[in-house]
């Protein structure tokens, strides 16, 4: 029989047991967290407005949640009746003469419901009894008579400031950081730091000094440039002047007029020069043609001359290498050039 089948009862028992334990644990933890089985004591208070109130809003005593708002309604006198519950663990705080304060930010920064225990007696308030708010006449009287355990400075604004404090702390830290940076820059500018910033400032000083030495030379160059600019300006003025250079050249009694009215003497002279140049060019052209015609012969003559020179070179080498004189003629493989021109080769 299969192992599982034989012990099916045990497996099923374990299967159910673990599931039940997990379920039970989850229920217990949830019930504790949600106060399913805890005793809550109900009281009521009254406010002039429901602004800032919400069901489930925590009732706090010195930052500890001791209860919450259960419900609130508008009564016949246009006042807001608020039902609150106080947890059993804090019920001893709900003594006679206690006051409830609603702190609401006028600029929408939230609010809170604060509980101030009475100090007149230790008698715990009866359930469903009335706890005055700080806006009511009873509440004001209790607060004025100093019979309420209200820490110094803890009021509506203080409650709101509790919410704003983390933000202010952040701003404070930021300002501190900025101050630190400012001090560092100031110290670096004073040359008291060996940090990168100080080094940069030292380098900047050296660069400025070098720049100061260069400035006279730059001034001289600039003076030259100014002179050039002035000359250019004068030239431009001359060109723009209607009595300037160009009219002088074009004047009827000027140089051009003289050159143009010389009875074609200059023209004839130039024509003769051009004729001579043409004659020379024609001669050059005929010479070029002749040279073109005798180019193959010239090539052959040059080849033969080259061969004769090589032979002469050999003779001279033989003479220089003669055993009687030096060491004889060195042997050499013949490498005759077989083609007269490059076109005679077959590729």
């Amino acid at each position: 029989m299969k192992f599982g089948f034989r012990h099916a009862d045990k497996f099923v028992g374990l299967f159910i047991l673990v599931a039940v334990v997990f379920l039970g644990s989850a229920l217990v933890v949830t019930s504790i967290n949600r106060r399913w089985f805890a005793r809550d004591y109900e009281y009521f208070t009254r406010f002039t407005s429901a602004n800032g109130l919400s069901v489930g809003m925590p009732l706090e005593l010195r930052g500890f949640e001791i209860g919450k708002i259960k419900s609130y309604t508008l009564n016949a006198d246009n006042k807001v009746d608020v039902t609150i519950v106080i947890y059993d663990t804090y019920i001893d705080k709900a003594t006679e003469g206690s006051v409830i304060e609603l702190a609401v930010s006028p600029i929408g920064l939230g609010g809170g419901l604060n509980f101030y225990p009475g100090t007149v007696s230790d008698r715990i308030l009866d359930e469903f009894s009335y706890i005055p708010s700080n806006k009511s006449a009873e509440g004001k009287a209790l607060l004025m008579s100093d019979k309420v355990d209200k820490p110094d400075g803890e009021d509506a604004i203080a409650a709101i400031m509790d919410n704003i404090n983390p933000i202010l702390l952040g701003v404070d830290n930021m300002i501190n950081s900025l101050t630190g940076i400012g001090n560092q820059v100031e110290s670096a500018l004073a040359g008291n730091q060996a940090t990168p910033l100080g080094g940069m400032l030292v380098n900047l000083e050296a660069t400025t000094a070098e720049l100061n030495t260069l400035l006279p030379a730059i001034d001289a160059i600039l003076l030259e440039v100014a002179k050039m600019s002035r000359s250019l300006s004068l030239l431009m003025v001359e060109l723009e002047d209607p009595t300037g250079l160009v009219p002088t050249l074009l004047d009827p009694s000027g140089s051009l007029e003289t050159m143009l009215n010389d009875d074609n003497e200059m023209y004839g002279y130039i024509t003769s020069i051009l004729g001579e140049i043409q004659t020379n060019l024609e001669n050059l052209s005929s010479m070029t043609n002749d040279l073109k015609g005798i180019t193959p012969e010239l090539n052959m003559v040059l080849d033969e001359t080259t061969g004769a020179i090589q032979e002469g070179k050999k003779v001279l080498e033989g003479l220089s290498n003669n055993p009687l004189l030096r060491g004889g003629i060195s042997e050499e493989a013949s490498a005759d050039y077989q083609h007269a021109t490059l076109r005679d080769e077959e590729f």
Binding site: G4, A8, F11, V12, I16
Partner: peptide, 13 residues
């Protein structure tokens, strides 16, 4: 019933 829980529950775990 036990065998059915075994087949359906334990074996599918």
């Amino acid at each position: 019933l036990i065998m059915q829980i075994y087949f359906t529950g334990v074996e599918a775990l």
